[in-house]
Design a protein around this nucleic acid. Structure first.
Lengths: 171, 171
DNA sequence: GAAAAATAGGGAGCGTACTGCATAAATTTT
DNA sequence: AAAATTTATGCAGTACGCTCCCTATTTTTC
């Protein structure tokens, strides 16, 4: 539970830095590092909110995409959620195991497996939605409404511009 | 790509959202979701920049903390980098295996293992630093300098406020 | 000083995110 | 129509982030 604050002995004084310059010397000055930390925090918040439900944010995202009832092959589903195809297959496997989704061979394309949400899955999504929202709310709770909007805007700007550099680009 | 399955008439087209409201309906409206995507993108950018070096952002973060030469026990080191103790032990194990760090039993506390960077590790940090910076730069390249500052400020605000939630709490 | 609590670490195991290689089925080219 | 290419998936393996359970040491408390 113990957490570290910025200046917390983690970083050496300036002269110890690899090049003696200022940019990105401190972990807390590295955007990628802070994004990783915030991602971990969100996962923690989500797990906390869904205490005992044994559900992850990614699993909920997959179920969210499936919620409409539309059928997806595994690759399209993974892309829609923005995860790697192999990760997606794993997530789907777990959802199927819990009876929240089905995965059956496609009739039109014999390579593909068709994934659909079950009624139990739809019910589950509805039941858990408040917890998902609580985790989101808590994550951004330190921000004003205006800051929240700016934050989302900046996130989207970075994601859209760099979309191709992730193994799992969206759409 | 998403297949239109013929017998797919089980779900009503309109009002597919669990509660029919607007907040967080779309994946792109969920901050936690976007943060996960951006995290993935940064990992991809980092791997791209460090092509062939077989180095991850987390490994570089650990080496960054060790760079000053200060000795850390595994738990302190993990906390300084903001990762779980078991994850930290794994990362350290890999760094030791590559000769970038050492891990020896502590003399003062026989429970602890003392981790230090090696000279090879320090050299490696210096050599790879430009690639790390390139990944950071590319991640935030869509932002103006002002937006960059705002983004970092908002990230830090959220992280500091939610600091205790990065791991599931002990019950 | 002995018992109780806290701390550092190991090991097993799960979930996500990826790389590589392989295979089968579909599509495109020739 | 045959060959080449693309596509959808699977499996094995790596990395990280976590949980739970366990042992071995401090450190605290009585």
């Amino acid at each position: 539970m113990a957490q570290e604050m910025p200046g917390d002995t983690t970083q050496p004084p300036a002269e110890e830095s690899p090049f003696g310059q200022t940019k990105y010397d401190d972990l807390w000055g590295r955007p990628g590092y802070l994004v990783r930390r915030l991602h971990q925090i969100h996962m923690g918040l989500f797990a906390e909110a869904c205490d005992g439900l044994d559900l992850t944010a990614v699993q909920y995202a997959v179920l969210s995409v499936l919620y409409s009832g539309e059928a997806f092959d595994q690759l399209s589903l993974s892309k829609a959620v923005g995860i790697d195809r192999t990760s997606g297959a794993d997530v789907i496997k777990r959802l199927v195991r819990r009876g929240l989704a089905t995965r059956e061979p496609s009739i039109e394309d014999r390579r593909a497996r068709v994934v659909r949400i079950t009624e139990a899955g739809r019910t589950f999504v509805r039941d858990v939605r408040p917890q998902m929202e609580a985790a989101q709310d808590k994550l951004v709770s330190p921000l004003s409404e205006e800051e929240h909007d700016i934050f989302m805007q900046l996130l989207r700007k970075m994601i859209e511009a760099n979309n191709g550099h992730s193994r799992a680009p969206m759409k």
